[in-house]
Amino acid sequence: MMRETNHKPVSILLVEDDDIDAMSVQRALHKMQLSNPVIRAIDGIEALEILRQGKIEQPFIVLLDLNLPRMSGLELLSVIRDDKTLKNSIIFVLTTSKREEEIAQAYQHNVAGYIVKSSVNQDFDPVLAFLENYWRLVEIPH
C-alpha cells in the first residue's frame, strides 16, 4: 500500500459482505491518503470471478472476511490454494471470528495474517497502517 508516489500501488480486493465495514475500510484509506485501487466483492463466488477473470490489477492483496454468503471465506481460501494460477495470492483474513479452529484453518491455507475486527464500527486505520508498512517492507511479485 502506498501514498501518492511514483511507485505502483498495491490493489486491494476487499471480500466483505458488510456495507458498514466496507465503507470503514474505504474511509480509512482516504483518511490515510492511500491511493490503492479497491475492488469489493460481497461473497466468495464474486471474489473468485474477479480473480479468475483478471479484473484486479497486479500486484494485489486480498482482505477476506470469513463469514460470507454463498461461499465462505474458508471455502474461497481452499479454492484459491487449489488453483494453480491463484495459489500464490497474498491473503489477509479480516474477520470477527476468534474461533481457534477457524484461525488454524486459515493459516493451513497459507494466509499472510489473521486480523480480528474488534467491533462493527471498527476503526480500520491501524489495520491499514499495518498493511501499508507490510507492503513498504516486503517485496512482492508483480
Rank of each mutant, 00 (worst) to 15 (best):
L131Q: 04
I80N: 04
Q33I: 10
K87W: 04
A41D: 04
T85Y: 08
V79T: 13
L29M: 05
I140F: 07
P37F: 00
D125Y: 13
D19P: 11
P69K: 03
R99P: 00
L94N: 06
P37S: 10
V116Q: 01
H30I: 11
V62F: 02
G54I: 01
M1G: 15
R27Y: 09
D82T: 15
V10C: 08
P141C: 04
E102L: 12
V38M: 13
Q105C: 10
I12M: 06
L66W: 00
I20G: 03
N88V: 10
D123S: 07
R52F: 00
E75F: 02
E49M: 08
K98D: 14
D82K: 15
H7S: 13
I20Y: 13
T85F: 01
F124Q: 08
R70W: 08
E46C: 06
I20V: 12
E46I: 08
V79C: 05
S119F: 03
V93K: 03
P59F: 00
I61Q: 06
S97M: 03
L128E: 03
E46D: 14
V15H: 00
Y114G: 02
R99W: 09
I42F: 12
N36V: 06
I56T: 12
D65M: 12
A129H: 01
M23Y: 14
E132R: 09
T96A: 14
Q26T: 13
Q105M: 13
I50N: 04
L13Y: 03
L13G: 06
V138S: 09
R3G: 09
K31I: 07
I45E: 12
V25G: 07
D83I: 01
N36H: 03
M71R: 03
V138P: 01
I140W: 02
K87F: 14
T96F: 04
D125I: 15
I103D: 10
P59R: 00
F130T: 09
S78G: 06
T96M: 12
D21T: 10
Q122D: 13
S118D: 12
N36R: 10
L63N: 07
L63W: 01
L51S: 00
K98A: 13
L64W: 00
E102C: 11
Q108P: 05
V111H: 05
S119D: 03
K117F: 01
Q122R: 06
R81L: 11
N6T: 13
L13W: 00
I90G: 07
Q122T: 04
D123Y: 09
T5A: 14
G54R: 00
L29R: 01
L68I: 09
E101C: 09
E57Q: 10
P69E: 10
D19H: 12
L34N: 01
T85C: 04
I61Y: 08
A112V: 03
E4C: 05
F60C: 06
L64F: 04
H142P: 08
G44R: 07
N121G: 13
L51H: 03
E4S: 13
D19E: 15
P69S: 07
A41N: 02
I61W: 02
R40E: 11
N133T: 08
Q33A: 05
R3A: 06
T85I: 04
Q122M: 14
V138E: 05
K8S: 05
T5E: 13
N121P: 07
P126A: 13
L34S: 02
V25E: 07
N133V: 04
N6K: 15
L131G: 10
E100M: 05
P141Q: 14
D21E: 09
N36C: 14
T85G: 00
K117V: 02
